[in-house]
Design a binder for these strands. Structure first.
Lengths: 332, 332
DNA sequence: TTGAAAGCGCTAACAG
DNA sequence: CTGTTAGCGCTTTCAA
């Protein structure tokens, strides 16, 4: 009996009167042992509190089953963005564990990553920025990478993403009359979801002979929003699609401060949902993303790659259309 | 030359005309080589793109440098709670990386954890619940554990936490007149921060001959808050301390709906801050936590333990007092 | 200042 | 069905 160190496979073998190989096979379930031996060895093992050394196991073969998780910092990270990310992370963790993998949090820093001491088998990058150096570093080191969201200018598969373009198009189709004048208010149009929503809106406008234009808004301060609204309203729009929930709430307040009625004078729609949107007056119509689904798909796709099977290159998750009072459904 | 697999220490040794031992020493900086040899070996290594295999390294000795991170799910997780957690996680990741460690996301599930295949060197548990089974599993497996926040009924060190009791006491001291009638509105009094804030409030009341009582509120819906306010207001309170920012915002709205002026008739204070609190009318006075500091302290304490040095058993982080309009500073 | 040998704990390949 | 052997890639003795 060893004294204080953890029991090794040899201790178990000795105690059970078999060889290390047999112990290994008994525990990993290789199909070559008698049921009786297997049971006995397992009993001895658990009696000794034996836990296989994952490092030795990984060294011999397939690696440790570690997946990196990089979450790119948004310059304008709002609370709901954080919630979105953490949902992805939680679900990806759960999915990974179910397949014997685990997620390692990685800093969004190409330099640090290029000298990473941890042996990763793959990585998930959430919301990569344009030409993300982190992606390059990870791919260059020969790692499998799946992105959640994508760099619109450089779509390397596999990726998973919300189908924001389709969501925006559908939401507009359900709530805004053809031939309308629509504006989109963006804060960070480089984010792929904003880009996609804009594409969807543009397409809807093309399909319905509507007028569409996009207006940047420099921040969430009332002054910034007022400035953007000056431009937008001078174009006599009757519908405004806003990049995110936070901006939607401020926009609603600023519209109302001008005496503009929502939805009476202008329809208001948000490209992201949040728990706050049902509680504004009026409540705000929005598309609703499914981060938990993204987390699950990303982890599965990555694990498939690692196991050698080719996952789908691109997976789009449909959005829910949440139709509230700020842009009610068109009458059939 | 090996074909597709990664270069090993032996490849480097062969290319440099030395033995594996020398390569190892050259790269890890053991002090027994001539400067010349060291430089040459390092050059060859980087030319071959050699990266030491962390598994083999860990197997021989000290482990891999992996720390588990468990974030306990709150039954009533609000957006700002998520932000708080993710800040802790980010800073802990950064701190860990600086010391050659990495964080692995763990599910909050005792069963899953008890058969964890990943070789962890320690774990950080954020906001453990009362008698948290996850803590027990981790500790029983002989792992170093640091908690952020603590189970009030079972404070096992080391832990780090916000000093919510002191924060509440100080904030009340700055804004509420002695001899007042104060109520605290709680949603989940089992959370240690709520418990602590209540202790602080109680202590302030004792010190200042004020009256204090605590009232549970079952949720964030207007009806739930109205119900709690019925009880509270019937006690003629002139100050209300609320468990969190979200509840504070709803409480403000419901008070105003009754025609009660804040701060004229009743002072309102929140035990957590959020980016929304400056923008309410009136803005809401609050204590402000420092999750980034907690993340850093937790990671350092854990790494200290692993390295064999005894970290401080308990580390309290002082809160900032953010005095806004809903409870202005007492005049000197 | 360097080399040779011996493992860390496990499993794959090959015998029996 | 089970045992023996030979490593995975590295570091740590110990010897030169």
């Amino acid at each position: 009996m060893k004294n204080s160190t953890r029991a090794t496979i040899r201790d178990v073998a000795a105690a059970a009167g078999v060889t290390p190989t047999t112990v290994s096979d008994a525990l990993t379930g290789k199909g070559r042992l008698s049921a009786e031996t297997r049971v006995r060895v397992r009993e001895v093992a658990s009696q000794l509190g034996y836990r296989p050394n994952a490092l030795a196991r990984g060294l011999r073969g397939k690696g440790l089953g570690l997946l990196g998780l990089v979450i790119s910092p948004a310059p304008s990270a709002t609370l709901s963005t954080v919630w979105y990310w953490s949902t992805i992370a939680n679900k990806a963790t759960e999915t990974a564990f179910a397949s014997g993998f685990a997620l390692v949090l990685l800093p969004h820093n190409a330099e640090v990553l290029s000298s990473m001491p941890i042996p990763l088998d793959g990585a998930i990058v959430v919301d990569p920025i344009a030409h993300d150096p982190v992606l390059k570093v990870l791919r260059d080191s020969g790692m499998f990478v799946v992105t959640v969201g994508r760099d619109p200018e450089n779509e390397i598969e596999p990726w998973v993403d919300d189908d924001n373009a389709r969501g925006a198009r559908q939401l507009l189709g359900r709530t805004v009359r053809p031939g309308s004048r629509l504006a989109m208010l963006t804060m960070d149009p480089r984010k792929s979801y904003a880009h996609d929503a804009r594409m969807g809106a543009q397409q809807w406008a093309d399909d319905t002979k509507s007028t569409f234009f996009s207006q940047a808004c420099s921040g969430l301060e009332p002054e910034a929003v007022d400035l953007a609204l000056d431009t937008v309203l001078s174009q006599k729009v009757n519908a405004i699609l806003v990049q995110n929930d936070k901006l939607a709430i401020v926009t609603l307040a600023r519209l109302q401060a001008r005496g503009i009625r929502v939805p009476g004078d202008v329809l208001l729609l948000s490209a992201t949902d949040s728990p706050d949107l049902p509680h504004t007056k009026p409540s705000i119509t929005a598309t609703h993303q499914h981060p938990e689904r993204l987390g699950q798909l990303a982890a599965s796709a990555l694990i498939d790659s690692i196991h050698g099977s080719q996952p789908p290159g691109r997976q789009m998750v449909a959005l829910d259309l949440i139709i509230r009072r700020s842009a009610p459904a068109l009458r059939g």
